[in-house]
């Protein structure tokens, strides 16, 4: 059976865009194949690792578990947007300074979840950090440095 595709319209990294999607297409496929955005990556395919994180209306979602049609009308931000002006986001700077990644495959997801965390809790406790990042996995095991990076990012954002 071929399902009819439909046109959806949404804001992607600050610009209004449209896309032709079929109902069974996931959001990550559309970002990747339709817009050439590769910062979100499908890894576990089950919403458990966080590699495919994007921000939808300001909140993290797993784009591998999200039907693209449901993004119609939404405001989407991918990791590529954070340094769109050429300047790194304080969260990105903090991840570099704290050495908070190794292979880097999971890093965009951690960066975006940290952004949601700091948007909601500018001065997060250790518990809040673990809570927001408990759905992001780093197989290289860089967690101690990630916690350090989140705290550094909070300080950087606080002092801006």
């Amino acid at each position: 059976m071929t399902a009819p595709s439909r046109t959806i319209a949404f804001t992607l990294n600050g610009r209004p865009v449209t896309a032709e999607v079929a109902p069974h297409h996931t959001l990550i496929e559309v970002l990747r194949d339709g817009f050439g955005l590769y910062g979100a990556r499908e890894s576990c395919g089950q919403g458990l690792c966080g590699c495919c994180t994007v921000l939808l209306d300001g909140r993290g979602v797993s784009s591998c578990l999200y039907l693209a049609v449901f993004a119609d009308g939404a405001e989407l931000v991918t990791v590529e947007h954070l340094a769109a002006g050429g300047e790194l986001d304080p969260v990105q700077e903090a991840f570099i300074e704290a050495g908070a990644f190794q292979c880097g495959f999971c890093t965009p997801g951690f960066v975006l979840m940290t952004k949601q965390l700091l948007d909601e809790h500018p001065d997060p406790s250790d518990d809040q950090i673990r809570h927001y990042l408990s759905g992001n996995l780093c197989r290289c095991g860089t967690y101690p440095q990630i916690v350090e990076a989140v705290k550094l990012a909070a300080r950087k954002r606080g002092s801006v």
């Binding site: 990747r32 955005l37 590769y38 910062g39 979100a40 990556r41 991918t78 990791v79 590529e80 954070l82 340094a83 790194l88 990105q92 991840f95 570099i96 300074e97 050495g99 990644f101 880097g104 495959f105 890093t107 965009p108 960066v111």
Partner: peptide, 21 residues
């Protein structure tokens, strides 16, 4: 020297190349 990884910027901006992509 404990310099940051030379590819650090590419990794935090999601632009580092992986064959995955």
């Amino acid at each position: 020297r404990s310099l940051p990884r030379v590819e650090a910027r590419a990794k935090v901006t999601g632009t580092a190349e992986y064959i995955h992509n």
